[in-house]
Simulated assay, not measured.
Amino acid sequence: MNRPIDREPAPSAVELVRAAGLWASGTLRPRQPDRRLIDSIAIAELPTAGPTVTVRALPQIARYVPAAGLVEGASLFRRLPSAMTTFVVEHPSATFLVDPGFCIDARTRVLDELPWATRLLVTPPKGTLSTVDGLTRCPPTRAPDFALPTHAHWDHVCGLLDLPGLEVRLRTVERDWIMAGRRAPAGGVRTALTDGRRIVTYDLDGPPVATFTASHDLFDDGSVLVVELAGHTPGSVGVLLRAGTGWVLLAGDAAWHHEQVDRLRQKPAIPGEFVDEDRDTAFATMHRLHLARHLARVIPTHDLDATSSLSGCDDHPSPH
């Protein structure tokens, strides 16, 4: 029996007009960095001992989008490559997926739950690879033991629909946000994270690390640290990895493109007003990413320019 579709309400006309005004204003005068906040951010030590991990981006095709739709104040005439990226991390004790983002038949299984205007903005191109197809094309040394989404939006958990039984590690506050309310985020999020699936919750119970206020040591050995990146969703996190070539931070949607991190720019109001739970907190997090780029390679999940540097598979599709 088909599951009922829990459609997300479309933005109201008032919300769209307000967001359009903010977008136009931000395009001409982007929000400026908070220098007092930058000066107040303490830099905590990174672990200096422990094992290393390997991290690879699964093969994916590109979707070219206007730069002004990713980076506030960017040119209206440039286009940047975006992608639905899933990462495979191999630790001596376990293999896990970060952001299993795309499922087979996503258009009928999850995208129908989104408002038509949202679908126009977020629907990926034909030929986009599902997470399970990416794993087939570029298999890890061992099958994944669990998944670790940076946050619980459809394009970071949809791939779980094709991986029944795979355990999920999810921050407690994020789990509560999607499970406790009357409505889950649209796009099959609640279905992807339930259906008999084991969810293991964690809290950021560790000390500050790098520029981030709290952390969780996933293996208790300093090799994989989950860090606070709140703002996009209440429980958004980054995954800070000690790779063989240095520290790598998988930043989820705290940033959509490394240009935001380099130039310290927030997301544009369209669609930022509709996807960030707390715009002020998200911008404060961007300040921490801006400083952290000197300590680790920051990789936004949808930035194909950045994720391509982690490609370790010969079967990487050519961008379209």
Rank of each mutant, 00 (worst) to 15 (best):
F274T: 02
L295S: 14
P66M: 10
L163A: 12
G26H: 14
R279C: 05
H156G: 03
P92M: 10
R119S: 02
F274V: 03
S236E: 12
T281M: 14
A24P: 00
S82M: 14
P81W: 15
T301Y: 02
V226L: 02
R279V: 08
V168Q: 13
R56T: 04
S308W: 06
V226H: 00
W177S: 04
P59Q: 15
R297G: 03
D133R: 15
T48Y: 07
R293W: 04
T191A: 13
C103K: 05
I199N: 00
V168L: 12
T245W: 12
P100M: 09
T128K: 11
G238N: 04
R279K: 07
A42V: 08
L135S: 07
A255L: 04
D303H: 09
A184N: 08
A143K: 09
V248W: 13
D276W: 05
T136V: 05
A13Y: 07
V298R: 01
T191S: 10
D305K: 09
L76C: 06
V261P: 00
L76K: 07
H316C: 05
V173E: 01
L310S: 05
H287T: 05
V89C: 03
T141K: 15
I199H: 00
D280V: 12
L218W: 12
L249P: 04
T131E: 02
M84H: 13
C158G: 04
G73V: 05
V239H: 03
R3C: 03
R197M: 02
D112A: 14
P124Q: 15
P268H: 14
A186K: 06
L163E: 14
D34L: 08
I299T: 03
R142L: 06
I270C: 08
A243T: 15
L135V: 03
T27I: 00
D314Y: 08
P185S: 12
F219V: 04
V53M: 11
R107K: 14
A143T: 02
R182D: 13
R183I: 00
L249V: 03
I270T: 02
G73Y: 09
D220G: 08
R3K: 06
H294P: 00
R190I: 00
D276H: 02
P100D: 03
L163T: 07
H294W: 06
P139L: 14
L170N: 01
C158W: 11
V173H: 00
C158I: 01
E259M: 05
T211L: 09
I104E: 15
V88K: 10
G312A: 15
P317M: 11
G238W: 01
D105W: 02
L121Y: 12
G159A: 07
V88Q: 13
H258I: 05
L70H: 09
P47Y: 13
T85F: 08
E15Y: 09
D195E: 15
H216M: 01
S40C: 08
E72L: 01
V239F: 03
G181D: 13
D6I: 01
